[in-house]
Simulated scan of single mutants.
Amino acid sequence: MSSQLKETFSAPGPVPRPAALAAKVRTLAPSMTRSMQRVADALVDDPAGSAALTVTGLAERTGTSEATVVRTARVLGYPGYRDLRLALAALAAEQAAGRAPSVTADIAVDDPMADVVAKLAQEEAQCLADTAATLDTAQLESAAAALAAARRIDVYGIGASNLVGQDLVQKLLRIGLIAHAPADPHLAVTNAVQLRTGDVAIAITHSGRTTDVIEPLKAAFERGATTIAVTGRPDGEIAQYADLLLTTSTARESELRPAAMASRTSQLLVVDCLFIGVAQRTYDRAAPALSASYEALAHRHHPRPAGR
Rank of each mutant, 00 (worst) to 15 (best):
M1N: 04
M1K: 03
S2T: 15
S3K: 10
L5D: 11
S10A: 15
P12V: 12
P12A: 06
A19H: 05
A19I: 14
A20W: 07
T27Q: 09
T27N: 07
T27V: 00
T27Y: 00
S31I: 12
S35P: 00
Q37L: 02
Q37H: 07
R38Y: 07
A40P: 02
D41Y: 08
D41F: 10
D46L: 05
A52F: 08
T54N: 07
V55S: 08
G57Y: 02
E60Y: 00
E60T: 06
R61E: 14
T62F: 01
T62W: 05
E66V: 12
A67P: 02
T68C: 09
V69D: 13
R71T: 06
A73E: 04
A73F: 07
V75C: 06
Y78G: 03
P79A: 09
P79Q: 07
P79L: 12
L84R: 00
L86D: 05
L88V: 01
A89E: 09
L91V: 08
Q95C: 10
A97C: 10
A97T: 01
R99I: 09
A100F: 00
S102H: 11
V103T: 14
V109D: 15
V109L: 14
A114M: 02
L120T: 15
Q126S: 14
C127R: 11
A133V: 01
T134H: 05
T134P: 03
L135H: 05
Q139G: 10
S142H: 12
A146V: 11
A146D: 00
A148G: 10
A148C: 09
A150F: 00
A150Q: 02
R151E: 02
I153Y: 03
Y156V: 04
G157V: 04
G157N: 06
A160G: 00
N162A: 11
L163M: 11
L163A: 06
L163P: 02
V164E: 01
G165W: 09
Q166P: 04
L172P: 10
I175S: 07
I175E: 07
G176R: 06
G176Q: 09
I178L: 12
A179T: 14
A181I: 01
A183E: 15
D184W: 05
P185Y: 03
L187S: 15
A188L: 09
V189S: 05
T190E: 09
T190V: 10
Q194R: 08
G198Q: 11
D199E: 04
V200H: 01
V200L: 04
I202P: 05
I204F: 06
T205S: 15
H206L: 11
H206I: 04
G208T: 04
T210K: 00
T210F: 02
K218H: 07
K218N: 01
F221Y: 06
R223E: 08
A225H: 08
A225P: 07
A225G: 11
I228A: 05
A229L: 13
V230M: 02
R233M: 12
R233T: 14
I238V: 12
Y241S: 13
T247D: 04
T248R: 03
T248C: 13
S249M: 06
E255S: 04
L256R: 00
R257E: 14
A259H: 00
A262S: 08
S263H: 08
S263T: 05
T265K: 09
S266Q: 02
C273R: 13
C273A: 14
Q280F: 10
R281I: 14
D284V: 12
R285K: 11
R285G: 11
A289N: 08
S293Q: 15
A296K: 11
L297F: 11
R300W: 06
P305S: 13
A306G: 04
G307E: 14
G307Q: 13
